[in-house]
Structures are given as C-alpha cells and as structure tokens.
Nucleic acid binder design. Structure first.
Lengths: 231, 231
DNA sequence: TCAAAAGTGTTCAATTTACACCCATGG
DNA sequence: CCATGGGTGTAAATTGAACACTTTTGA
C-alpha cells in the first residue's frame, strides 16, 4: 500500500483580494505558457526544497504585490489534491486567501505574462485555468465567513482608516448596505477591534473622520457567549 | 527552479474528538513500528493513487471508528509541510478534525497496535510522534472556534439528543458552565439550529426532556449582522 | 417523599433598530 | 451658503443575565 502512495509536487496558490471602489476584486495572472496558455489563473508557485508551503504562499504574495513590510492576513482555504487536477502530473496545491488594502501595486514578475485586477463577480464568469474557479469560489466564501466571525476586515484597510472605510469593506464583501450610525457604534463598542489614533482625515469628503488602527482582537464575540474560564 | 521542487508523499491525519463524561477526548494510536515506535500518534495514512486527500481522511476515519453510515463533521485544520517533520523523508500532511458522538466504537486496525481515548488535556502532556502535538493543538483550537460560529456542536451528539446533552458539549469544549435555562431558550430561538422530534427521553434522569435533531443551519448568526442580499 | 433534571417566568439591564438630527469640512 | 459624509440622540422593541420557580420523572 505505502509503496503505491503517489509522489506529488506541491504548489501554493494565493487568492489575493482587495476592495476597490466598493467592489471586491481579485488579482489574476494571464498565463504565458502551457498548459492553459493565455487563460486567467490564480497566482501560485512550487514549494522549494528548504521551505514549507506557508512560506511558499508568503513568497508568492510578495512576488505579486508590494507589501511594504506589513504582514497581511493570509488564511488557508483548502488543499486541492485531485489526481487529475493538473495535466502535467500529480501536483497538489494548498490555497490561501490574502486580504490586502487598496491601492495594491501589482508587480509583473515570475512566469506571469501579465496581472489583472478583476471584480470577483466577473472573474467567476471567465474560464479559469486548472481547478481555479473552484478555488476562487472557496476563497471568496472563506473571506465572507472571516468577516462574520473575525476582525479580518481591517486587513482590507490601510494602516490607518476611518470607520466608513471599514464599513465599505463589509458592504463590498457581503453585498448590501449597513446603517452608518449603527455600524459606527457597533465597531467602537467591541473591545479591541479598532483603536483611535487621535488623528482625523477629510479624504472621504464631508466632516473630518477620526482615524483608527487595527486592535489586538482577532475574533468577534460569538453569538452563544463563552463562559469565563473556570479551571 | 521547478525541477528542484521536491517530490513528496501525502498523508491525511484525522484528529477524532468526542465528548465523554463531560470531557473532550481524542482518539490516539500507540505506534507499532518505527519511527516513534511505542509513542502516541494521531491516526492517519497515505493518500492512494486514485483518491484525493479528503477521501483519504474519510477512509482513515472509517477505519478507526464505526460511523454507521452517518457523515460526520470533518473540517480541515491545516497543511503540515515542514521538510523535517517526518524522519522517513518528505512527507506532507493534511490534518482534519472530526467531531463524533459518544459512545464511539474504536476499532483496532491498520498499523495501529492499539487505539486509546484520552482526555485532550492529558494527551497534550504526553509526548506525541512527529509534529502531532502541534496538530492536536491546532485541531482543538479549530473545534473551539467551530462551536463559536457554526452549528458543529451537534456533530458531537447522537442523531437525536436533548438540549442538555448539547449544552454539555459546549461546556466540555469551552470549559465552564452555561445557565441551563438561558441556553435552552438561546438554541431554540436560533432558527434552523435544532428541530424537535416530538419524542422525549428520561435517559438523563429527572423530568423527561424533549428530543431534537440537527437542523439545516450550518452557521450561527454573526455578531455584526449581515444585510439582506440586495443585488 | 425526595432528588434530579427540564423547562418556563420574571425582572432589570443592555443592546438593537430605525431613524432624526446636528457637526465640521470643502467647494 | 450648500452638499457631503461623520457622528450622536432617541424611543421602541428585542435580547441578555440572573435566578426563582414549576414540572415530571426515578429512586
């Protein structure tokens, strides 16, 4: 049995999402070589000998975007291992979703002939290489869930952001509108979600808005409250 | 670069959890062969040629437990790919966490010399083979998070269960006590979480309790409410 | 009759919702 | 001045927390 266990190569695919002009967009590459030459694909690459797959994902992310030293939110979406998923042979892939602020600077590099930002709705209508349509669907679903239960939304914002900018992230990812006043109170009341910098900005127009930073909290309070730790 | 991408074998490890006597317990195997002979390990096995890693995980779960045709909650925990994690060579692992009802019937099979149920607290104090301590920690954390935000707790219960049995799942996994009355109202008010069967039981002693089935809902309501879908 | 567990009532506090309304800026 | 978005006030409805209390069984 063991001897028959197939030898595979590993790749990391990174679904890079951002919110641009109140829409959720994804970074795709136009493939420059076979297989699937000319088709859109999710950026990714092979794991190298001295690294693990998480490090591969980070490296791929850095190759495609300018991160300016910030560590982005990078979350595992799934592991894609169907024997037939890659015509080149047995290649398994770990997929991550990255949430980065706008304006993301796309670099052209690696074997990507060109990189393109596309609204997610539109990307899902395009034909994508390999099983990348499935991966993209799973990644977007994971992002939506992350906004439900974690503070991941701040990863879509710059280091300093206004509450309205944060609200527009939720609106873009979830679809629909949120009441600005109620949203403001909600997020300021959840302890550790965001912290005021003391500065203000007028970049969104209108009355100056207070600027905030991401807080230390990672998880939003659950709807069934957890008891205090007793033991 | 590509040519240097290492060839690896894939395994699926399944952290099988249950709630027994108000404690969270994990199924481990005592290894019957090298490496780590005699040590405790998380059950797992190699991916075979005609399957994907999810199917491997399901197969491993079925080898270790009697599932009686029910599909258990099986959730991806992570992908473990450090080059040095297995002394036999480059072996990458996908880890899942399974939540199954008590009483789980452990089968002895495969290359497991013996299987043992251990309270999670205790298992984390034992030395475990490979990087299985890390995997177990991650799996338990994933299970806790799942109870926060999804209806996964019902997976720890039998097909028909009382609200108290469900409450004891939360208490065992989270630690601490929940108010029985308030918990009762909470879970019956969340639409689609559980549905009454109409039957009652006295198996927990005291006044007969109504029996429930798992409902169709998979996710608990988020603390920041999602707006209605507009588009 | 008593203990045990299920489930409901009750009360006060806190939060949510849906708005109206005022505030502070740029043009 | 006006338009724009930021942020607070407010009142009604809902929900939450704590805990007393009734119900229904087995022992």
């Amino acid at each position: 049995m063991r001897d028959r266990s197939p030898l595979v190569q590993l790749t990391a695919d990174v679904v890079i999402l951002t919110v641009r002009e109140d829409r959720l967009e994804v970074l795709l590459i136009r493939r420059g070589k076979a297989p699937f030459e000319g088709m859109l694909a999710i950026p990714g690459g092979y794991m190298e000998a001295d690294e693990n797959l998480w490090q591969t994902a980070i490296r791929e992310l850095e190759e495609e975007t300018s991160l300016d030293g910030m560590t982005p939110h990078l979350e595992l979406v799934g592991v894609y291992t169907d024997p037939e998923r890659d015509p080149r042979g047995q290649i398994a892939s770990g997929a991550w979703v990255a949430m980065i602020p706008d304006p993301p600077v796309a670099k052209a590099g690696g074997d990507a002939a060109a990189t393109e930002w596309l609204p997610v709705d539109q990307a899902l209508k395009e034909p994508l290489a390999f099983d990348h349509k499935l991966i993209l669907q799973d990644a977007v679903e994971k992002a939506r869930q992350s906004l439900n239960q974690s503070t991941a939304a701040v990863s879509f914002c710059r280091k300093e952001f206004t509450i309205s900018e944060l609200r527009r992230v939720y609106e873009a990812v979830w679809g629909g509108k949120l009441d600005p006043g109620n949203f403001h109170r909600k997020v300021t009341r959840i302890d550790g979600f965001i912290e005021p910098t003391g500065e203000t900005t007028t970049r969104d127009g209108g009355r100056p808005a207070a600027l905030y930073r991401a807080g230390a909290r990672r998880w939003l309070p659950p709807s069934i409250p957890r008891p205090e730790v007793s033991a």
